[in-house]
């Protein structure tokens, strides 16, 4: 699949996150992955592997150091996808 459009990436990610999070809070672009959605580092690493396959890209896990919110993650994927 080739959802390289920013909104499509956002939608796809929010769907996956709602499966993964134990928290009841609504997922918005500004939601904090760890603080609000309780996505721990292992879940995040596994989610990254999935994302890599979905978009056929490589997301270095060190790039996640700057990722706090859902929007940060979408920005990162969008940037990598656009460059590839």
């Amino acid at each position: 699949m080739t959802a390289s459009n920013y909104d499509e990436i956002m939608q796809l990610l929010c769907d996956r996150l709602s499966d993964l999070t134990l928290s009841e809070v609504e997922i918005t672009p500004e939601s904090n992955l760890i603080g609000q959605l309780s996505i721990d580092s292992i879940k995040l690493l596994n989610l990254i592997m999935e994302i890599e396959d979905t978009f056929d890209i490589s997301v270095p896990i060190n790039a996640l150091a700057d990722v706090q919110t859902v929007r940060d993650l979408v920005d990162l994927i969008y940037k990598i996808k656009s460059a590839s």
């Binding site: 690493l45 592997m49 890599e52 270095p60 896990i61 060190n62």
Partner: peptide, 13 residues
Amino acid sequence: GCILSGADIIRFK
């Protein structure tokens, strides 16, 4: 070690 190196880290299953 990978984090210390500054290289891009990619995991495989």
